[in-house]
């Protein structure tokens, strides 16, 4: 009896130790969801950025199919993470487009700085009465700067095809 008790106590300790030692250090759910979002910060999901949308998903306030830039693959990844059903992208929130970056037609720019605050990633450079420009490498293609421009000098340009960016996936 005593032996059994000792064995069980030992096993209990062992399990406790193993639990502590092997415990998976997991990110909070919001962070995990946020990592699967494209970070375009475009707000097409009706939240002001990817993180707020991730919080809404985690609190079951939003569906997983509200992010057009993420596309079907992104919905699938979210569904896998959350154990939810895969749904097609909700067209209310927009359609998935080919990746593009904003470009300012510089001779048309009047330097009104209206496009600078909407940019979620501070990718537009410019000052009042000065010509503005987009840092292409940092632009997420969210299109939030298009509508504030009073002279419509911002356009979306698809990524240019070049041998340098070419990959074997483009071969087929």
């Amino acid at each position: 009896m005593l032996v059994l008790c000792l064995i069980f106590a030992f096993l209990g300790l062992l399990l406790g130790y193993a639990y502590k030692k092997l415990k998976v250090q997991s990110d909070p759910l919001v962070e995990q969801i946020n990592d699967l979002l494209p970070q375009t910060q475009c707000g097409q999901c009706n939240y002001i950025g990817c993180k707020p949308y991730a919080e809404a998903i985690a609190n079951n306030e939003a569906e997983i199919n509200q992010c057009p830039p993420n596309g079907e693959a992104g919905i699938l990844a979210l569904a896998n993470l959350l154990g939810k059903e895969v749904k097609p992208l909700n067209p209310e929130f927009g359609e998935q487009k080919a990746p593009a970056v904003a470009f300012i037609i510089e001779q048309d720019c009047i330097g009104c700085v209206k496009c600078i605050p909407p940019c979620p990633v501070d990718a537009i450079l410019g000052a009042s009465k000065q010509m503005h420009t987009v840092i292409a490498a940092e632009c997420t293609g969210c299109e939030l700067c298009i509508s504030p421009c009073p002279v419509d000098c911002i356009i979306m340009r698809p990524l240019e095809k070049s041998a340098n960016h070419w990959q074997w996936t483009d071969h087929v």
Binding site: N34, L37, P38, Q39, T40, Q41, G49, C50, K51, P120, V121, D122, A123, E138, T140, Q167, W168, T169, D170, H171, V172
Partner: peptide, 28 residues
């Protein structure tokens, strides 16, 4: 080759997303 390209592309996308996330959070 296609698999390698996919992996590279994934890697690049992750990097870009991380950059955008950082800049967005800084702005917030």
């Amino acid at each position: 080759r296609i698999a390698k390209a996919e992996i590279t592309q994934k890697h690049r996308q992750t990097e870009q997303a991380a950059l955008a996330k950082e800049r967005f959070e800084n702005q917030q």
